Simulated assay, not measured.
Amino acid sequence: MSLKTHHPVPLPLASYKAQHVKLVVEGKLATLTLNRPERKNPLTFESYAEIAGIFRAAAHDDQVKAFVITGEGGNFCSGGDVFEIIGPLVEMNTVDLLKFTKMTGEAVKAMRACPQTIVAAVDGICAGAGAILAMASDLRVGTAKAKVLFLFNRVGLAGCDMGACSILPRIIGQGRAAELLYTGRAMGGEEAERWGFFNKLSSSENVLADATALAKDIADGPTFANGMTKRMLEMEWAMSVEQSIEAEAVAQALCMETEDFSRAFHAFAAKQKPVFEGN
């Protein structure tokens, strides 16, 4: 059992051979699949660390412009593996427990820190740490069959896990987030779309294709500018309106120096659709 914060990951991501999750890089798009379908894709100590390592490496990858994260076999993720994680945690001392909780948080930190847009394709069970991975993504495409559960209190734990008390209220609002975190109840797919957790609903047959199409569309956009948008969305939560306006002035000025900004102007002048290259 390893509690390392991350695995060393070779660059570029296209050369990385994942051991505990499935990673496929095709052009500008990387797809990360949780692939233990016989148990609804639970996470292990190793897969937590590998996910963190992949997204840390993504911050230095110039080829990959967007991510899709999904689960194999009709479910997204059932959370931490009961026997491979929950059982061992009961036997750990405080020092090792803190190492574990910090290690799991690294996955969310890496997802939020990488410049690429992350689109989650969510079907079936999306529970515990699986719900956190969906929450930590930038966009979420779900299905009516999806069941999202922040079920930490059901196992005697607080709802404040891996950033849930910070990020979830930003997505669905404080009151709704509090309800889910206090009760641990399932949020159905249609409710999740109505509350804004899912950006759109798709069918089980098409959810991955729809999420992939959305990610590809973003990957074809001005990716430096998209990365700046992600960064500012993250930073401005702790800023006043005045600070946000000043920070966005700097961010936008930097984007105006890119070739993509120039390409967009010349394409508009020529009445053509701009072809962005991410620089």
Rank of each mutant, 00 (worst) to 15 (best):
K99I: 08
G173V: 06
I51S: 04
D217H: 12
K4N: 13
R263W: 03
G159V: 09
M187E: 00
K4R: 12
M1P: 12
E242P: 02
R112D: 05
I218D: 09
F150Q: 03
P10Y: 08
I85G: 02
F197A: 07
G124K: 03
A121C: 11
S204F: 00
I172Q: 09
K145C: 01
K17C: 06
E205T: 15
M103I: 08
M1W: 12
A267G: 07
N41T: 08
P8A: 03
A52G: 12
A251W: 10
Q174H: 12
G124V: 03
E26W: 02
M103Q: 10
E179G: 07
D220G: 15
A253Q: 06
V24I: 04
E277V: 09
E234P: 05
R194C: 05
G227M: 13
I86E: 03
D260R: 14
L214N: 10
P115Q: 13
F268K: 05
K273P: 00
N75Q: 00
S166W: 14
I167C: 14
G74A: 03
Q116N: 13
G128I: 01
S166N: 14
C255V: 10
C165L: 11
E277D: 00
V108D: 13
N35E: 15
G53S: 02
A192Y: 01
A225M: 12
V155M: 12
G79N: 03
G227F: 14
E246N: 06
R154K: 15
F76D: 03
M103E: 09
G184D: 00
R140N: 06
L34V: 10
C126I: 05
P222F: 10
E248I: 10
A134Q: 09
P222A: 15
L233C: 06
E193S: 04
S202H: 01
G27F: 04
M1N: 12
V95Q: 15
F261A: 13
L180V: 03
A144K: 00
E72Y: 05
V148E: 00
R185K: 12
K28V: 10
H266T: 11
Q174L: 10
R112K: 15
K109C: 12
E46Q: 14
V24C: 06
I69P: 04
G221R: 08
A177N: 09
H60M: 04
G227K: 07
N153A: 01
A158S: 15
A110Y: 14
M235Q: 11
L32S: 02
V68A: 02
G175E: 15
L32I: 12
D61W: 01
V155C: 08
M256A: 11
P10A: 01
T70P: 00
P10W: 08
P222L: 11
R194S: 12
L89A: 02
Q243W: 01
G163D: 06
E259V: 11
A66H: 05
S204T: 11
T212G: 13
S244Y: 04
M111Y: 07
S244P: 00
V250A: 01
S166F: 14
M111A: 10
G142I: 02
